[in-house]
Computed example of a mutant assay.
Amino acid sequence: MAQSTVDVSGLTCELGGRTLLASAALTAVAGQSVAVTGPSGSGKSTLLACLAGLRRPTAGSVEVCGTDVLALRPSKAAAWRLATIGFVYQFGELLPELSAVENVALPLLIGGGARKEAYPAAERLLDELGVGAVADSPAGSLSGGERQRVAVARALSTRPPVILADEPTGALDEEATDEVCDLLFALPAARQCTLVVVTHNPVVAARADLRLRLSGGILSEEPCPDMTGPAGS
């Protein structure tokens, strides 16, 4: 049996008197994609924050790539995240004044990489993801689809074993949604990483190997819906 990359057990998180997570459990391995759906405010983003060690739950355990995330000291947590977790957000969250290649190279530079190595590596990633032509363009000038491809490239720049995507297609039109989904859900097999996506879109979720629904604090597995058409329909 493959060793779990993400192993969550008994995860409970309360905020303002509300229970966002109630003894949630999640296990995923390298090469696997997981989608989590649920209504707004149900705790999907909170779940990702717990996986990344950005939020401390009320109870439970979180192990990512063999590391007890809840035992990480603050002084070590940032470096661990940089090496282990790649983030893709709904609006890309790129620095608009920097070029696409500068945004992708930034995690490498923060991690202590040399400029002469970081920039060629960033350029190769942009080429691989089909946005090499906009490498020198300011991130603020990119289309939604281009921005998300650059965001995926940035998430991959440090070769993390886990990719967390928070509503990565929420701000995209139908065509761009389909293209970004093709890219994201190909990553686990191509790079032997684990992908966890939270989304409102059931057709996006249907692409995942494992589909979970978060409602009332309960995280439960659900079957693949019988949906047809492109991911943005």
Rank of each mutant, 00 (worst) to 15 (best):
G17L: 10
T19M: 02
T19P: 01
L20M: 08
S23Y: 15
A24W: 11
T27S: 13
T27V: 10
A28W: 03
A30I: 02
G31H: 11
Q32Y: 08
V36G: 06
G38S: 04
P39Y: 08
S40H: 08
G41H: 05
G43C: 13
T46L: 10
L47V: 02
L48T: 01
L48I: 03
A49K: 04
A49V: 04
A49P: 12
L51E: 08
L51M: 15
G53P: 00
G53Q: 02
R55Y: 15
R55K: 06
G60C: 05
V64F: 03
C65Y: 15
C65W: 13
C65I: 15
D68Q: 13
L70Y: 14
L70N: 09
A71Q: 14
A71D: 04
A71V: 06
R73Y: 11
R73G: 09
R73P: 08
P74S: 06
P74E: 11
P74T: 10
K76Q: 02
K76D: 08
A78E: 04
A83S: 14
A83V: 10
T84G: 15
I85D: 02
I85P: 00
G86T: 12
Y89V: 07
Y89H: 07
Y89T: 08
G92R: 01
E93S: 13
L94R: 01
L94Y: 02
L95T: 09
P96K: 05
A100P: 01
A100E: 02
V101E: 15
